[in-house]
Every structure is written in structure tokens, then in C-alpha cells.
């Protein structure tokens, strides 16, 4: 079953379209990679999906047409978006960031439980819960951004370039967490990345973008072994 269906999605900044009638689906319970070079339109897709950018076309999420929904409503429906550059509130404490992430959750007990749960997954955050988010290291901030997004109990977690600016070891750690979220909780993930090699090792399916359109799609394992794809699209 597809949790997300995108048909003929066009969007852009000002008068120019960056996306030209993009079509793709995300199957429930899978990790989907969205790859491509800088400027291909990957970030624009995520911004259109979370409602930060006006768009045309059909976006169906769990049976709801998202275009009628405000960005806030989309979060309530279970769509979480970790933007490039983390999306954390720099002058809030770690704990306040998590509280803000749970803004759509009304049940105080559930918020407290979730907080403890993600603190146990990210012990570094537990140690720094009173510290300002802006003072954390890059890796810690990415973990905070992830925990912040998880506080809203998303059905689909979209993450924009999680590896950006992180050491390879920490990037790997983040991807291991993605994998365990998918394995243990059946969470669906849509990951935008330039680091194709690493992402394809974790993803089930993948789409490759080029100049505002999806040009290649398939199983991640196939893309990983397809030399033509590797050379022409992923620059390996």
C-alpha cells in the first residue's frame, strides 16, 4: 500500500518552476531514497510536500489530498519534515525543542513518555537536555532534529540531506537509526541525499532526479549494481 502518491507535481520559486510534473510513490513501511545532484529539485519536492511551498498536482497522503491542508495540518496528519540545516530552534534548550516537536500532541503523558524514549535512544541529548540547542555539535543537532521530528509521532518521516556537514562515522550512525526506526517501528522514511552510495545501502527503493524530474527509479540494490546509473547519475 502506498502511503504517499504524488502525481504531476509542479512547484517552484516565483514565476519559474523547479519541478516539472513529477510522479512517484512511497510504499508504507519502506525506506525510499531520493537522489540527484545539487539543484535537481530534491529539496523543492520536500518543501512542496510539507506545504512550505505552493504547488500544483495531486499529493495523496494516507488517503487525504494534502493540497487542501495547511502545513500545520500536515504535521497533525503524520508528515514530519527535517529540513536541511536541521530545523532545530537554536536558542531553545534541548528539552524545549522536543516539547516544540510535540506541539501537535495533546496528551501530556504521551509527550513525557516519548521524551524519555528518545532520550534513551539518544543518550547524548539526555545529558544535554538543559543546554541550548545552538551550542550542540553538528551530529548532536542532527540527532536533536531527528528526535524533534519523532516527537510528533509521524507516519512518514522526510529528511533532507541528513549527512550534510557530518563526519562519515556520525552519518553512518544516523542511518543506522533510520534503519532501526524502519525495522522496529515500521516507520516509512523518505530520504533526500547526495551521498548515493551510503543511502542506497539502507534504502529499499530509490528515485534519481535530474533537472526537476525523476529520470530513474527502481530497487536500491539494482541501482547500486547498475554501473550505467552509477556513472551517469550518481557521479561515482
Amino acid at each position: 500500500m502506498n502511503i504517499l502518491t504524488v502525481r504531476d507535481l509542479s512547484a517552484g520559486y516565483g514565476a519559474t518552476d523547479v519541478l516539472h510534473k513529477v510522479n512517484f510513490t512511497v510504499e508504507q513501511g519502506t525506506i525510499v531514497a531520493l537522489l540527484g545532484a545539487n539543484g535537481a529539485g530534491k529539496t523543492t519536492i520536500l518543501r512542496a510536500l510539507s506545504g512550505l511551498l505552493p504547488s500544483r498536482g495531486v499529493v495523496e497522503f494516507g488517503g487525504t489530498d494534502l493540497r487542501q491542508c495547511s502545513p500545520a495540518r500536515r504535521v497533525e496528519l503524520g508528515l514530519a519534515h527535517i529540513p536541511q540545516g536541521r530545523g532545530t530552534f537554536g536558542d531553545f534548550s534541548v528539552e524545549e525543542n522536543l516539547a516544540a516537536g510535540a506541539f501537535t500532541i495533546r496528551d501530556k503523558k504521551q509527550i513525557a513518555e516519548d521524551m524519555e524514549r528518545w532520550y534513551s535512544v539518544f543518550p547524548r541529548l539526555a545529558e544535554r537536555r538543559r543546554q541550548q540547542a545552538g551550542s550542540l555539535s553538528g551530529g548532536e543537532q542532527q540527532m536533536l532534529a531527528l528526535a524533534r521530528a519523532l516527537m510528533s509521532r509521524p507516519k512518514l518521516l522526510m529528511c533532507d540531506e541528513p549527512s550534510l556537514g557530518l563526519a562519515p562515522a556520525i552519518t553512518e550512525q544516523i542511518f543506522e537509526i533510520f534503519k532501526s526506526l524502519n525495522d522496529e517501528h515500521g516507520m516509512t522514511l523518505l530520504i533526500v541525499e547526495q551521498n548515493a552510495d551510503l543511502t542506497l545501502q539502507f534504502a529499499h527503493t530509490a528515485y534519481v532526479m535530474e533537472a526537476g524530474d525523476i529520470t530513474v527509479s527502481g530497487l536500491a540494490s539494482e541501482l547500486l549494481s547498475n554501473e550505467a546509473v552509477q556513472q551517469s547519475y550518481l557521479g561515482v
Binding site: S70, P71, A72, P83, F89, F92, A99, A100, T104, R148
Partner: peptide
Amino acid sequence: TRLGLAMRASAYSSEKSLLVGIR
């Protein structure tokens, strides 16, 4: 308060606030 948190968040960044579901 939750309201105060949302108002501070909105003042910090409207885009980041939208992404956590703040109107």
C-alpha cells in the same frame, strides 16, 4: 505554557515553527 512556547518558536523562525505544526 504551550502557547508561550509556540509564540517564542514563531518569533525564532516561522518556517521551523510551521514544520512542527504551529499555526
